[in-house]
């Protein structure tokens, strides 16, 4: 799935295109998008999270800071991806 697939185009004008790093991979997004949505649209669907075994964590579930599934390391701090706004050059890591 390409990154443009899930973004609605009809009648929508988005912020500037930026890119950031997630586990060393470059992800394209728009400035100001929620990081969780940007990861989701960028095709990153799961991350290791805190389970050593068991199912992977999701990058998107409640989208409002409740479920804690999307918690990743952003510029060194553990934060809910759905509460972080994308900006160019974010350093996102999903493995602790």
């Amino acid at each position: 799935m390409t990154s443009t697939d899930l973004r609605i185009t009809d009648g929508v004008e988005r912020g500037p295109r930026v890119s950031f790093q997630c586990d060393g991979r470059e992800v394209e997004a728009h400035e100001g998008e929620s990081l969780a949505a940007a990861l989701w649209a960028g095709g990153i669907r799961t991350h290791a999270g805190l389970h050593e075994d068991g199912p992977p964590y999701r990058v998107l579930f409640c989208a409002m800071g409740v479920c804690q599934q999307c918690v990743v390391q952003v510029d060194g701090a553990r934060v809910e991806a759905c509460r972080v706004l994308v900006r160019a050059g974010l350093d996102v890591r999903t493995r602790t």
């Binding site: 009809d10 009648g11 929508v12 004008e13 988005r14 912020g15 997004a29 728009h30 400035e31 100001g32 998008e33 929620s34 706004l85 994308v86």
Partner: peptide
């Protein structure tokens, strides 16, 4: 809305 300049 964030990351959006204009929408319906």
């Amino acid at each position: 809305a964030t990351g959006i300049r204009a929408s319906k």
